[in-house]
Amino acid sequence: MNSTVKTNRVKLFLITCIAGVVIIALTLWGRYPKPGLLTLNDILHDELALRMFILIRVPRMVAALLLGAVLGLSGCVFQYVFANPLVDSGFLGVSQGAGLGSIIAMLAGFPFTLQIGCAFAGALLSLALSILLAKYIRFGGLILRLVLAGIAVSSVLSALISLIKFTADPLRQLPEITYWLMGGLSGVRLPMLVLPSIIAGISCLVLISLRWQIGLLALDDRAVRSLIKNPFVLRIVLLAFAVAGTAAVTAYAGIVAWAGLIVPHIARIVFGAETRSTVPASIVLGSMFMAVCDTLARSLFPIELPLGIVTALAGAASFTVLLVFIPIKVERG
């Protein structure tokens, strides 16, 4: 095993340990019974604090970790599969598709399980539409055609979401949709996480198993086609698993922007471009990023901020810092 891989394994182990400690601290952090850390004394002697910790904070932290892990991982997969560091799972209309499916299910009053199914169907449909459209675009190579198709499909889906908002009942449905679209974990309870956890778990396992091949796909298209038999099929399989995970978490969390874009960048700065390290690192760093953002969202002010706003602010700030202060060479020739 080469020294880069060995060093990265040690780094990843250390970061995971630090993340563990941070996550425990963040779960204890909040505004009840007073702003700050929940103490053992509070948990043992205040029944409300105990119930709040077990029934609200722990499920919410699990939801945030799952959300961050999946968004970080799928962002990483998208960035390598498209050989483009400026894309994430919102690309190709996947987030918007999942969002549209969920909104339709919400308005139709479907149970949560069906809502996940609708989010998944919406995400897969948008992926299929983008790929189909890319096939017929008579301009550029596969990657560029997918980028162009993704822009068009995302735009159509955003317009459909706006149309639903426009026609929704302004007193009952519109606030529900608007708040959901901003992303948030305030309504999450443990039973809601069972199905998304299974889907996201399978998605993560498959993608981690293919972590080396994910990096290979970022080479020049002619080189990729000379090295593996059917790169198109491999790309579609990877995207399908990334989309499945994204749809499962979008169904309970809404559209949470920026995590999928920024987390793989941070992973590459810490671990280098090698996907054998960057893929698992995106899961750990994504979880940590989301745990921090959700803790800020629920505890920064007396009222809760939508998670999507916090991730957008934190993501944009990190992105600016990366672009201004850290020299990253991403392209050559």
Partner: peptide, 20 residues
């Protein structure tokens, strides 16, 4: 096959690049 030119999107280490 050695293509004439290649677009490089990420700065892999030389060893990883050869390993592909």
């Amino acid at each position: 096959y050695l293509p004439q030119q290649e677009r490089i999107a990420y700065s892999f280490s030389v060893l990883e690049y050869v390993l592909f």
